[in-house]
Nucleic acid binder design. Structure first.
Length: 267
DNA sequence: GCCCAGGTGACGG
DNA sequence: CCGTCACATGGG
């Protein structure tokens, strides 16, 4: 077991941040994450975080996954104090980080996400994993199924996973997007056009895949929550240029704060 | 039982 | 190019 004192990291906030759907609360301060074909149990008390894994796994898998080498304090300090709303949002969600998740999993997850609430997305992701993923040791958890596994599913089979009209999007993705990880080297603009060329991937979903799956932290997904914030607090025009190169981090602060305002998820 | 959701694609103007 | 609309299901 590895213990670290970490700043700007809140598992509770990340679990509610709408970027990761397989980080689940298992009790006060206790979490379980399924990612990278592994299960990781975590406990957080204040800034003390314990990772239930070996030192080697911590260094090679979870340090990059949680983006622990990036100083999020620098992002927080970059916010001008004249932006009262964002200052408050960032302080409120200062434990949010941009996880380095798998591009394929993000493609499928955010194809599912359209016109669904976060608990419903979670439920679909679990169904797909339990039905088509492989079990992880004796943990009772299942890895997210790869493109090979999903390409074996018929359209009707996918439909039965509560995917609704999105089922054909997944069906096509399993056949056309197997080489997704080879897109890692493309510049943002090129990556964006490749993603939006996939059926069911529009600008919002593409930006989510870029931000959460390819760690392109300049990507700024505009969803209903962000648009609401921009309309209400920024007169319809958010000063993106101020955050050149890391607007995605700012987007997460805004999203998390806006959403917690109307749900009772403050912590 | 309604209502609507981390949007997108197809259509008409 | 821009406004509308259907789309399938599960949570709130």
């Amino acid at each position: 077991m590895i213990e670290r004192t970490l700043t700007q990291l809140s598992l509770a906030q990340i679990a509610d941040s709408g970027q990761c759907f397989r980080l689940l609360r298992r009790g006060p301060g206790r979490f379980r994450l399924v990612a990278a074909g592994r299960v990781l149990d975590l406990v957080q008390k204040g800034s003390r975080v314990s990772f239930h894994c070996t030192e080697e796994e911590f260094q090679t898998v979870w340090v990059p996954y949680f983006d622990l080498c990036t100083d999020y304090g620098a992002f927080l300090r970059s916010i001008p104090s004249d932006d009262v709303f964002l200052t408050r949002a960032a302080r409120f969600g200062e434990g949010v980080r941009i996880l380095r998740q798998d591009p394929w999993e993000m493609l499928i997850t955010f194809l599912i996400s359209q016109q669904k609430q976060i608990p419903a997305i979670r439920s679909c992701v679990e169904t797909l994993s339990r039905r088509y993923g492989t079990p992880i040791g004796d943990t009772g958890e299942y890895a997210f199924p790869g493109p090979e596994a999903l390409s074996l599913c018929s359209l009707e089979e996918l439909r039965s996973c509560a995917l609704g009209y999105r089922a054909p999007y997944l069906y096509d993705a399993a056949r056309s997007a197997g080489e997704l990880s080879q897109w890692s080297g493309l510049p943002d603009q090129e990556l964006f056009s490749r993603l939006t060329a996939l059926s069911g991937v529009g600008p919002k979903v593409a930006n989510c895949i870029m931000l959460f799956g390819f760690h392109r932290i300049a990507a700024f997904p505009r969803d209903v929550w962000i648009n609401r914030v921009i309309d209400r607090y920024y007169g319809g025009n958010f000063p993106l240029a101020r955050y050149d190169g890391f607007a995605g981090v700012i987007q997460q602060y805004l999203f998390y704060y806006a959403r917690s305002g109307s749900k009772g998820e403050a912590e």
